[in-house]
């Protein structure tokens, strides 16, 4: 479904991604784990066209999307819930959710999708008219995911959904990721919380200083000694 072919990304003189290749198949949950600064976010930011690779190709469903503008990438069916949530704090929860459906025509089932999102996140229903800035961290994360779902993505990319959340909320978020996937959305998940991420994912990539150093099924990665030491704190 999504293929990254040897992409290189630079920030000024810093070589942020080095020949990163990655594949996501239809219907999978794939996770990228690695330390801060390893290049996980940069990878999905280049898929969303927020940064431009200097070389390499990004293919989505057979189409080269390397040079598309960010909004066109969204129109192709790739949506990202960015790191740090980045909800529009001055707008209401409702406006935030509707903003997610920006690319869609009026009346094309948007109202139903809003209901669907509210079903997925009952907490948001309670806060529907409140401004997003007043939500707690967990609620904001739910809003960010819900907002991303509103564009009806075929591929949903989540950047650190567990960031700064209390443990019970983390559980909840990962359960929701499973639910979303069960509804037929392919998920690419970037996580610090390697353990949780590998538990929900089918396959995983381990990034280190801008390179893919390990690539395997989630089961095998969980069993891998190096991974356990480096990322699971053992």
């Amino acid at each position: 479904m999504l293929t990254l072919e040897k992409i290189d990304v630079y920030y000024g003189a810093i070589h942020a991604l080095e020949q990163v290749s990655l594949t996501v198949n239809q219907g999978e949950i794939v996770t990228m784990i690695g330390a801060n600064g390893a290049g996980k976010s940069t990878t999905i930011r280049s898929v969303s066209a927020l940064v431009r690779p200097r070389s390499g190709r990004i293919m989505f469903e057979g189409e080269d999307i390397t040079r598309l503008a960010p909004h066109l990438v969204v129109q192709r069916g790739i949506c990202q819930s960015p790191e740090g949530r980045r909800v529009f704090a001055s707008m209401s929860v409702r406006e935030n959710i509707e903003m997610g459906a920006y690319t869609r025509k009026k009346g094309s089932g948007i109202a139903e999708d809003v209901d669907r999102v509210l079903q997925l996140f009952p907490r948001l229903k309670e806060r529907f008219t409140q401004s997003a800035g007043t939500l707690s961290g967990g609620e904001q994360q739910m809003l960010a995911i819900g907002r991303a779902l509103m564009s009806r993505p075929r591929l949903l990319m989540l950047d650190e959904p567990s960031l700064g959340l209390a443990p019970f909320l983390v559980q909840q978020i990962f359960q929701i990721i499973r639910d979303i996937n069960a509804q037929g959305v392919t998920v690419l998940l970037v996580e610090q919380n390697a353990f949780q991420a590998l538990r929900v994912a089918a396959r995983g990539y381990v990034l280190e200083t801008g390179r893919v150093v390990l690539e395997d099924t989630a089961q095998n990665l969980l069993a891998n000694d190096d991974v356990r030491k480096a990322y699971l704190g053992e």
């Binding site: 960010p70 909004h71 129109q75 903003m99 690319t103």
Partner: peptide, 11 residues
Amino acid sequence: YDREAAALMGI
């Protein structure tokens, strides 16, 4: 409010 997040909404 946030140009990048807006771009991610397809704007």
